[in-house]
Design a protein around this nucleic acid. Structure first.
Length: 559
DNA sequence: AGGCGGTACTG
DNA sequence: CAGTAC
DNA sequence: GCCT
């Protein structure tokens, strides 16, 4: 006996099942044992009406969107999940014609608009083929209909391992020979030196030069050769000449006591290049001395930076990030059951350890910042009540009242007597804080022997550190629903990736920010025109960047 | 000569 | 406004 | 610092 052709398969047809032709096909599916769904469940086969596909590539996603007949959240799930595969509806009719299940691969439809021959696109292709074969039998964990963007992200993170093995043999990661070590070392020192001095652009100049030498795999033997590389100009080229002749740059290798101090101060949250430089040039050698000499530099959030100086310089194991998220999710459900919070930052890029925990908070369909702000405020209060939030780093008026006692305890400990007056700001667009999990949930003490900056003994009085549970830096960013894509790009990074996108935007007369991709209107004083802000994929594709999953956005230099 | 990211928060 | 952080 |  034979089962009908589509037994056990579920189908989602996009963008709508309303057209008569689609209705006809739906009848055939059901007659052959298949079922229709209107949301993503395991193993759902996603089919695109062929009229929206041009030669294996999805045509304009805005048209796609305008004929959308499912709910908005499904749209977002689909465009935000880089692991999903789409197939042309004609696969179905072919199967019926031949009365057997044909290879879907020949009917794959890709979700992008431009393809500028970027060198890594075949590489991306390889990954999606690679994961497709194993996806079907490994994903058995969630059966719920109510999974959301966050589950999508977790799933794609679970696939990091698979993609890494692919990256390993296709990329040149094994080229361990570094023919220009003397040069790159010197440039790195110069980069650090100027960054510490707050000369960010000069520092950037050295950093870019460093990167172009690193990606040049031959040994550089002349000033001429150096000059021909991008981002290497007369000044750096002549320094290179000197190094080639003398073996090193005069006056660079002395271990600089001042640079060490600058590093020490700037590792404190809230102390930047200007402040650190001022202290150092006035002979200050510790935070305690700085507090006496420059009390006004010690705002309450620098004091928190001091208190958690050591905790905040240790990396967070990936697993712990998920625990923080789970805790916040639970609290958020009680505040607003339809609001969502997701992990972004280096976590979403697949990192094994993260410097901080970056999250985005949104509510499907909600563009009203005031509503979102209220949700965030309530969430923060709940988290504070659970003793999870140990210190705030920014506040609005209402939260200022709530955290006043906590802040005054701190400022009094530092010897200040003024009382804290909360600012006038009513809406809260983001909340940065230090959070600590209850000690019972602590993860296996990871043996990451990380070289951690320690406080000097005389500075350790203000500090609060705990062997088993660390206080972590957590960022919550609000996003309007309509701007979720731009916010996700911005907060997922990495920095160089974002810079590349912004540069591409400016080249096209646009500007990219965390609010979206806009047509800039410099001359006329009209407002900038929105091009796209919701769809992460479309923003990238408009900028001529082939879609890449977060794990591949860990780039160095520009793309 | 002027550009190098755009935005939110603190004081 | 400068300074800091993201 | 380098690039336009």
């Amino acid at each position: 006996m034979k089962c009908p052709l589509f037994t056990g398969l579920s189908f989602l047809i996009l963008p709508s099942i309303e057209p008569p032709r689609v209705q006809f096909i739906v009848k055939l599916i059901e007659a052959n044992g298949g079922s229709m769904v209107d949301s993503l469940i395991n193993d759902t086969v996603i089919l695109i009406n062929d009229t929206f596909v041009e030669s294996h590539t999805l045509r304009k996603s805005e048209l796609f969107h305008s004929e959308w007949s499912y709910d908005e959240e499904l749209w977002y799930k689909l465009v935000s999940n880089e692991q999903l595969e789409f197939f042309k509806l004609s696969w179905l009719s072919e199967c019926l014609k031949h009365q057997k299940l044909l290879d879907k691969a020949d009917f794959r439809a890709r979700l992008m608009e431009e393809d500028n021959g970027n060198s890594n696109s075949p590489h991306v292709d390889a990954i999606s083929i690679e994961t497709q074969s194993s996806a079907e039998d490994t994903e058995v964990e969630d059966q719920t209909l109510d999974f959301d963007v966050q589950t999508e992200l977790l799933k794609s993170d679970a696939n990091v391992m698979a993609s890494q093995s692919v990256i390993e043999d296709t990329s040149e990661s094994k080229s361990t020979v570094k023919p220009n070590l003397a040069l790159t070392r010197a440039l790195e020192q110069l980069f650090k030196k100027y960054r510490l001095q707050g000369d960010t652009y000069r520092a950037r100049g050295y950093q870019l030069a460093l990167q172009s030498i690193e990606s040049h795999d031959k040994a550089i033997t002349s000033e001429q050769e150096a000059l021909s590389l991008p981002n290497i100009g007369p000044s750096i080229a002549s320094k290179i000449q000197t190094i080639l002749k003398l073996g090193s740059l005069p006056g660079l290798n002395e271990a600089d006591k001042n640079e060490e101090l600058l590093d020490y101060f700037m590792a404190c949250h809230g102390v930047g290049a200007q402040t650190a430089r001022k202290w150092v040039s006035n002979g200050i050698t510790s935070l305690t001395e700085a507090l006496k000499a420059y009390p006004s530099d010690f705002t309450w959030n620098v004091l928190f930076g001091w208190r958690f100086y050591e905790d905040w310089s240790v990396k967070i194991p990936r697993e712990e990030c998920a625990d923080h998220l789970a805790l916040m999710e639970k609290a958020l459900r009680d505040v607003d059951s339809s609001a969502r919070i997701v992990l972004t930052g280096s976590y979403r890029r697949g990192a094994a350890t993260c410097g901080d925990i970056d999250t985005v908070l949104y509510k499907p369909g909600c563009d009203d910042i005031w509503t979102l702000s209220q949700i965030l405020e309530k969430l923060v209060l709940r988290l504070k009540g659970m003793n999870y939030i140990r210190c705030p780093l920014n506040l609005n008026h209402a939260l200022g009242q709530e955290f006043k006692p906590m802040i005054e305890t701190l400022t009094h400990a530092a010897g200040f007597h003024e009382s804290y007056v909360s600012g006038p700001k009513e809406v809260l667009k983001k909340f940065y804080f230090g959070g600590k999990l209850p000690s019972n949930t602590t993860h296996g003490l990871s043996k990451t022997e990380q070289q951690v900056p320690r406080l000097k003994f005389e500075d350790s009085l203000m500090s609060e550190s705990d062997q088993n549970t660390h206080c972590r830096r957590v960022d919550i960013l609000l996003s309007r629903w309509s701007q979720l894509g731009a916010v996700m790009i911005y907060f997922t990074g990495n920095d160089d990736f974002n810079k590349s996108l912004r540069i591409r935007a400016t080249k096209r007369g646009w500007k990219l920010s965390n609010n979206g991709l806009y047509q800039s209107n410099a001359n006329t004083e009209k407002k900038d025109l929105l091009i796209e802000s919701f769809d992460e994929r479309r923003i990238m594709s408009l900028l001529g960047v082939v879609w890449c999953p977060p794990e591949e956005r860990n780039i160095k230099g520009y793309i």
